[in-house]
Simulated scan of single mutants.
Amino acid sequence: MQASPSSAFVLHSRPYKETSALVDLFTPQGRLRAVLRNARGKSGSLARPFLPLEIELRGRSELKTVARLESAGIPNLLAGEPLFSGLYLNELLIRLLPAEDPHPHLFDHYAATLQALAAGRPLEPLLRAFEWRLLDELGYGFALDTDLHGTPVAADGLYRLLPDSGLERVELLQPGLFHGSELLALAEADWSATGALAAAKRLMRQALAPHLGGRPLVSRELFMTFKESPRD
């Protein structure tokens, strides 16, 4: 069975048998895995992350076969911190997105985020927005301007995140809390507000942690190594 052409990005690829590659793809129809034959030829040169592709797949099983693979746009050339940020997005999708579960709006958001990374836009707002969109698409999202009881978040209040429920107001100071003013700034995507970016990073880490199963993210470790390594 041959599917109609689809937009796609390669999330990851690795050698498979003698001359093939096993590729993880992100398409509007979901995350798919496919075998790319003759991966040392022209198609293999296209099977790299961040390049917009048009693809046709064959097969009824979860493991498809690439029937056609062509470039479909300008490559998103990422280097340095934007490169590691893109690898981070890819790893999140591989780890969290169920196979063959369509998310066309998330696909569009991913494509736009890659373009913004390639254009040199500030990294932190792009990453936090994508993490939030991914959680929301997977059904793990929560309100930022109301607590788990539906009460509006108070700017002078303190809140903790219960990942399965939402935000809960607390009275006693404890590690990992969020100020209401920070949460309200995040609800408005006001990244210029004091503490907003730092709070968003902590909040997304707390929200993502239960769904990552305790396994560290390879891209995050690579990024930390890159930041710590001496550079000219």
Rank of each mutant, 00 (worst) to 15 (best):
G44S: 11
G180F: 10
H109V: 09
M1S: 14
R14N: 02
Y159M: 01
G180L: 09
R14L: 12
D232L: 14
S43R: 15
I94D: 06
R33N: 12
L92G: 02
D164H: 11
R121M: 14
L77C: 07
R231L: 13
G80Q: 06
L186G: 01
L97T: 11
A207E: 03
L183C: 07
Q2Y: 13
G41N: 11
K64Y: 11
L126P: 01
D147G: 03
L93I: 10
R37C: 09
A207Y: 00
P216Q: 11
R60I: 07
R60G: 15
L158R: 13
R133F: 10
P163M: 03
A129M: 09
G150H: 06
G80V: 07
R48E: 12
Y110V: 02
L161T: 02
L89E: 00
P28N: 12
F84I: 04
R160L: 12
I74N: 08
S229T: 14
S13A: 15
K17M: 10
Y140W: 15
R31K: 15
E81H: 12
T151L: 11
A143W: 03
E91H: 08
A200T: 05
L63D: 07
G30S: 09
L222P: 00
L83F: 14
Y110A: 01
A207R: 00
A143H: 06
G176R: 07
L148Q: 12
T27F: 10
P230M: 13
P125I: 02
R68C: 09
L123C: 04
E62P: 04
L87K: 03
L162Y: 09
I94G: 05
L11E: 08
L96F: 08
P98H: 10
E188M: 11
L167Q: 00
E131F: 01
A79N: 10
P210S: 06
H105N: 10
R68D: 12
L138Q: 04
L83Q: 03
L83H: 02
Q115T: 14
F84Q: 03
F142S: 00
G30W: 07
S181N: 12
S229M: 11
G59N: 07
E221T: 08
S71I: 07
V218H: 12
T225Q: 13
G214F: 08
P104E: 10
E131I: 00
D232S: 11
Y16N: 07
K201W: 01
A72K: 06
W191H: 08
D145F: 06
A118E: 05
P98V: 04
A3F: 09
G139R: 00
E124C: 03
A118R: 04
L212V: 07
L167G: 01
M204W: 02
L135P: 04
K42V: 14
G195T: 08
S85D: 02
A129S: 15
L53I: 11
L148T: 04
F107S: 01
R169V: 10
K227Y: 04
T146P: 10
L63A: 10
P75N: 09
R58P: 02
D145Y: 05
D136C: 11
L177P: 02
G80H: 08
A79L: 08
L184I: 11
A112G: 09
G120V: 04
Q2G: 06
R231Q: 14
F178D: 02
